[in-house]
Nucleic acid binder design. Structure first.
Lengths: 419, 419
DNA sequence: AAATTAATTTTAGTCTCTGAACTAAATTAC
DNA sequence: GTAATTTAGTTCAGAGACTAAAATTAATTT
């Protein structure tokens, strides 16, 4: 019933290119030059005539604008002609010049930081991971920790910072994407930290910030299943319960940029205690610490072990047939159904992607969770919501951060190409 | 604590004009001609120079485009100059020619239909109400019932259909705004009724359809508090619990046009039975039939009376000090808090308007509902959500329907003005 | 080799909107 | 009362972004 996606799925050859494949419904804002560039990157390679047809613009415009982009070094003609079948003059495919620009994506975590270097065509060129000791630190300490991370990355690709156009950074907490500030994060000792500016200063490079859930959503939009969907939701269950939403190929960040806190919608009056201090939050029934708490009670496990370890042993117990352990997962599964059903009821997406690194607790992602979700949802026949499970490697977040940097960098660089 | 708005509030003189006052953030799509027209209508009357400043366009463009619109009969210069204070040449205000076009808004209900005639400047010119006997009928019967409704309306304004440019219709149920079809409605015997086409045929006029909650939201956006807010949510508690959302001055209808079913989000696993057949829906704790059901149980009232009557006597009992009646309202109030808190958590609006005709059960709209809502919400200091209570007359829905027709008609008529 | 087909390129506009110069109508300074 | 000052509105050449249609190029058929 679930549509399970894995990174190295052999039977689904990855689409060429990166970024959303479908055109924006509302693509008035961006000039045609940028639309053409983004279409070429999304398709991997396309001929001018196909671009004209796909975007519904005249061939003359495509010739003129691609000529500018070729002259500026962002596009190139592909030598070997891919299509030999046609009758008339063979099309000449265009593609993005990969090393016309690079971006770095960084994910800050409590136990390790990861980084990815991506070229302008969206190819992952290098990656590095750096363990960290203290989960919570000052901005200055964080900056110092990031230097070797980026050094390793650049050394791997035999590059230096001068060719990097932007850095995207993901960190959990309350993030103000607009200003690049962090009102609060569990990983920082400061509040209202001007993290974006601090990084921009240190690395002399534009910096873009966002939270985990949005990064994951961008990763789906740029590199995953979401590329062929212009509207979808992403739900992730990890330390907390997060959600992201894409509307018309664009990340929706909530009216004032702080919405989509799926983990803290209330699913029970006076319900279970959440780490946010309130009661009845969805997260309090579903996140790792919630299950670990129940494991400690039901199985008499010591409360001293980490949430991850408690969860592992709870999972093993359930697998071994322990009924109490199973009940814990089952209840969590029912609450997941309820949460997903509420997402469908409010946003009516055509697709929900359950994404993240730990999508592997069968009990949580069993078929009956899905059927319970549909049972809890008022759906007209035409609008059954599809649900896909996408287990990524641990570099997803950093890749999502490169998508963030890439999309911002693209409009700047391509917008600056003069006629 | 609540910001209570009433239609005839003496201390808040109504803003002139109609429609959103704030410009669209993303107003690339509409040509400048339409932007100028809509700005003039929103302001009631403005001088050309003010338009240029407000929209950030050159004065030359404003002169040229307004000249076209004046020639086409949509705009006029206002004779008496309103501002006498300035130094230089006095500005000449422009305003919409009210009778350049008219639209009709119709609300279909179970017990009565109402209609409003609005001129192109947004003024309500006439209204009529027609009782109906059977709550559920065929499209053909509905059409027949609508004829006298519209006849009365036109007679009142001494007009005929030839001057009406569009009809907006609101009906409860599952409405497909795009196609004008009604997959299901409690007021129709047919399913998948092509209601829009049927009306368009009968009245020889473009017809636009939408559901109650969206109409109410449009009424707020065009004529109410929402005019000065480009992003807000509307929540209404009537027969059911409805919700509407405005993002960037535009009505957000959910990804596929069927979302925002706030009444059917689940707030309790295996909770109270909802009329949709499922359990634990917010509506099952909050809508009139839910309260009436509890009233029947707690007060031993006969189940035979209407929900409205049961609710009235329950309210009277509560007012008189009946503890059981009070408890019913109190619990409903807590669930309202919970529902509002979930709206804030997911959408993060700056304002929620509690709107509708029956905003008068103090117990439901008491200050402690509001404080409970804030208590249930994770809010950073900068983003406290404001809540306003807006009690409209029973023509709100029909007025909202005129807004629907007006916005569609405007782009057609103004777009057709040739240079 | 000529006809046909399809992909680009060129060229001559069209549309929309801006910017700067110019006119119009009032107030204020002397 | 007249000139300087201010603000509103008008005119018009032209930039920028595209389009439409003719011209060119390069292959496939016949």
């Amino acid at each position: 019933m679930y549509d399970v996606l894995r990174d190295a799925d052999p039977d689904t050859p990855p689409l060429p290119g990166c970024g959303p494949v479908l055109p924006l419904q509302d693509h008035d804002g961006s000039p045609l030059r940028q639309q053409i560039f983004e279409h070429i990157r999304a398709m991997g390679q396309v001929a001018r005539s196909d671009i004209a047809r796909a975007l519904g613009v005249s061939a003359g415009s495509v010739t003129a604008l691609t000529a500018e982009l070729i002259a500026a070094g962002f596009l190139q003609e592909v030598e070997d002609s891919p299509r030999e079948t046609g009758r008339g003059r063979p099309p000449v495919a265009l593609s993005v010049v990969p090393d016309s620009s690079y971006v770095i994506g960084i994910k800050i975590s409590d136990d390790q930081h990861s980084a990815v270097l991506t070229d302008f065509a969206g190819n992952m060129v290098a990656d590095s991971v750096q363990p960290t000791t203290s989960p919570r630190k000052s901005v200055a300490e964080l900056l110092d920790e990031t230097v070797p991370l980026i050094d390793t990355l650049l050394a791997q690709a035999k590059m230096d910072m001068t060719r990097v156009s932007a850095i995207g950074i993901g960190i959990s907490g309350i993030i103000d994407h607009q200003t690049g500030t962090v009102p609060w994060s569990p990983l920082l000792t400061e509040t209202d930290a001007d993290l974006g500016a601090a990084f921009a200063d240190r690395f002399a490079c534009p910096v873009y910030l966002d939270n985990d859930a949005n990064l994951l959503t961008l990763a789906e939009l740029w590199f995953g299943r979401g590329r062929t969907m212009s509207d979808f939701a992403v739900v992730t269950v990890e330390h907390g319960v997060g959600m992201g939403l894409v509307l018309g190929n664009r990340l929706f960040r909530g009216v004032r940029g702080m919405g989509l806190e799926l983990g803290h919608i209330k699913v029970q009056l006076d319900g279970a205690l959440c780490r946010c201090g309130q009661r009845g939050c969805l997260e309090a029934y579903l996140a790792d610490y919630a299950l670990a708490r129940e494991a400690a009670t039901a199985l008499g496990q010591p409360g001293s072990q980490t949430a991850a370890a408690a969860l592992e042993s709870l999972f093993a117990e359930a697998k071994a047939g322990n009924q109490a352990a199973r009940t814990i997962f089952e209840r969590a599964g029912r609450y997941l159904s309820l949460g997903l059903s509420n997402v469908i009821q409010l946003f009516d997406p055509a697709l929900i992607i359950l994404s993240g690194e730990r999508m592997r607790y069968d009990y949580l992602y069993a078929d009956n969770v899905l059927s319970e979700m549909h049972r809890l949802t008022l759906e007209t026949s035409r609008s059954q919501c599809e649900v896909a499970l996408h287990a990524w490697g641990d570099l997803v977040w950093a890749r999502g951060a490169t998508a963030l940097a890439l999309s911002a960098t693209t409009s700047i660089l391509i917008g600056a190409v003069a006629p």
